[in-house]
Amino acid sequence: MSADTAGPETLGSLSTEPEHQDPNSQQAKEIAGKSPMRIALGRLAKDKIAVVCAVVVLFFIICAVFAGPISAAFGVSLETPLASERVDGLNQGLPKPEMGPPNGPFTMEHPMGVAPRTGEDNLAYWLYGCRVSLLIAATATLFASVVGVIVGLLAGFLGGAVDKMLSFFIDMFLTIPFLLAALTIAPIINDRFNLSDNYGTIQKTALIVVLSIFGWMGTARLIRGEVLALREREFVQAARVMGMPTRRILFKELLPNLAAPIIISISLMLPTFVALEAGLAFLGIGVTDGVSWGQTILKATNLTFFREYPQYLWQPLLGIVALVLSLNLLGDAVRDALDPKTRR
């Protein structure tokens, strides 16, 4: 999470910069008269892949928001059962046959089976894992975007020494190896708050903070570049000449014109953060209370469980893959729609 590219170890970059949109291009002139957002939405609706992906994402959002009611409807919950009631300690800790796979037939009581060793219900953990994943990714995206937009705006608009300093900080954060930093910071934050009653919440907050701290640079660069171009445009010059205060210029004049790059950076960040949250949990940091897809994957990669009970691995894995994939493809479509010049 440290260089400008999307090398695999960086889990997809936080800072890929799509090409700048040229507002004076031929296409832009042809469709004059409609708001850019309307045009983009129209393009999106015609893109079949985008529609499918949007439906998938919507499905995950519903699962996340209504995790409670859906679990209740299936009669499952996060509650820890007594392990010996559901799993067979003398048979490698695998679920008893009456609990469903891998040793028994499908049962309505536990539609996705139960976890080995603990006997916790997989469906409930999957649903709440989805909630955790989306919640953390969405919040981190929000914070990172806000920071990125503000830094980008200031650097781009004020220029000079401010720009130099902020750019330096952007570069500096890009050279800090993200995974290492997260590995180091998360336990320290956790340690400080382990007495709190809301420990679970604080842990997630800590994760969001860490993700945001290392996620804002891409947005900042993008916005900065955009602002540098906008700054010289007539309407900004006019506002300046009229003596509009800087803050108003920034938020009233510039910000509305930055909708496209902001959406683009959000579309890049969301899937990255979903993948990162699970990836960190897989490495054993981040969320540790068990309600996380990444943690379930970590447990399921135990070779015996993988051989005997691969469903246990595939459930969270498919969740992450489907969510990240559709977010990525949707983001790609959104970028295309906003900026047809890069369309393939």
Binding site: P8, P271, A278, T301, R307, L325, N328, D332
Partner: peptide, 29 residues
């Protein structure tokens, strides 16, 4: 077109899951 979309597909999967599955299936299974 097939190439571009299939590559887009692969690169949209989180890398560590791709690597994990590669290892689990090719080495273990």
């Amino acid at each position: 077109k097939a190439l571009v979309s299939s590559f887009l597909f692969i690169s949209s999967i989180p890398y560590y899951l791709f690597a994990l599955l590669t290892w689990l299936y090719l080495t273990i299974t």
